[in-house]
């Protein structure tokens, strides 16, 4: 491969990687926010993404909504589902040992996956083409309209989230609760309400990712959340679990690495690459790229 075509291939995979990575980032944000606030690895989070994709499917096919209303519909529905799951499954376990609540999360994951199989059958569904897919060619670099859509929507959502977390009362309360729940309670913060809000926000971002993936790959199925869920979890750990910009960074890095591995080697190694990343990060920097290597304060 000569230099010119290498550079072109590299640029092409970068584009693919960034759009895939923004999906991971959207899912990873929910993992990291929920971990930040109740120290739970929410294994059902990938299934919320699946649920979001189905909600988008329902909105576009049965309700006949166009893309943006369907996206909002899916985000709201998944947000409500997130609130219910926290209320019903996790809140009663709040003071239980970590392992018990982790197992609960796995249970919720199965419940969503097989519940969806029951309702919607295991058959993949074809996501309607809500967009005219056009393909642009910039000097040999192929970009399609879905990739642009994924990037734009992800950026808007991440900017929105960053604003909420840094500049609104609820967002500041989220940071306060995740830093020190008892101190937050002494400020008059109803931590149950803030935890609900966190689940709602995290779940709606995952739902947005689900809808975007539906639009991109045109196909959704009840188990579609397993692999991206796992990878987004790795992305969250890579960026530093509990750290919001870390989830964005981790997601994009994961996407780029996967795209490069599939582009330059073979897509069969793609999944392996993410697990290699996980192992490396756990070995050499368990607190993640943006995490501080310090123990909890005394």
């Amino acid at each position: 491969m000569d230099m010119g075509s290498f550079a072109q291939q590299f640029a092409q995979q970068l584009i693919n990687g960034i759009s895939l990575g923004s999906i991971y980032a959207l899912i990873a944000l929910g993992y990291t926010m929920i971990y930040g606030i109740i120290k739970l690895i929410n294994f059902a989070h990938g299934d919320i993404y699946m649920l979001g994709a189905y909600m988008g499917f329902v909105a576009t096919t049965m309700l006949g909504l166009s893309f943006v209303p369907a996206l909002i519909f899916a985000m709201v529905a998944a947000g409500i589902a997130g609130i219910i799951i926290e209320r019903v499954a996790y809140r009663p376990m709040r003071n239980a040992p970590r392992i018990a609540i982790l197992i609960t999360a796995i249970g919720v994951s199965f419940f969503l996956e097989y519940g969806m199989i029951l309702i919607a059958t295991p058959q993949p569904r074809t996501f309607p083409a809500v967009f005219e897919a056009s393909v642009y060619n910039f000097y040999g670099l192929i970009v399609n309209s879905q990739q642009i859509l994924i990037l734009v929507i992800s950026l808007v959502l991440m900017a929105g989230l960053t604003y909420i977390v840094n500049h609104t009362k609820v967002g500041k309360a989220m940071r306060a609760v995740s830093f020190d729940a008892d101190a937050a309670r002494l400020m008059g913060i109803d931590i149950d309400k803030i935890i609900s809000m966190t689940f709602a926000l995290g779940s709606s971002l995952a739902a947005a990712a689900g809808v975007l993936v539906g639009v991109y790959y045109n196909s959704i199925d009840p188990l579609m959340g397993m692999m991206p869920g796992l990878k987004a979890f790795i992305a969250a750990v890579l960026g530093g679990i509990g750290i919001i910009p870390g989830a964005m960074l981790g997601g994009v890095i994961m996407g780029i690495v996967e795209a490069m591995v599939s582009g330059f080697f073979s897509s069969t190694f793609r999944d392996a690459a993410s697990f290699v990343i996980l192992i490396l990060i756990l070995l050499y920097r368990p607190s993640g790229i943006l995490g501080k290597n310090v123990k909890e304060k005394v």
């Binding site: 500041k172 306060a176 008892d182 101190a183 002494l186 400020m187 008059g188 109803d190 304060k297």
Partner: peptide, 29 residues
Amino acid sequence: HKIVASGLCQVPEGRHVFANMTVLENLEM
């Protein structure tokens, strides 16, 4: 949180400021 609303507030042992937030944000909380 309801007790705070009724006009009683505790400064906990060991301060427990929100170390990840600015002074201003702490006061806002």
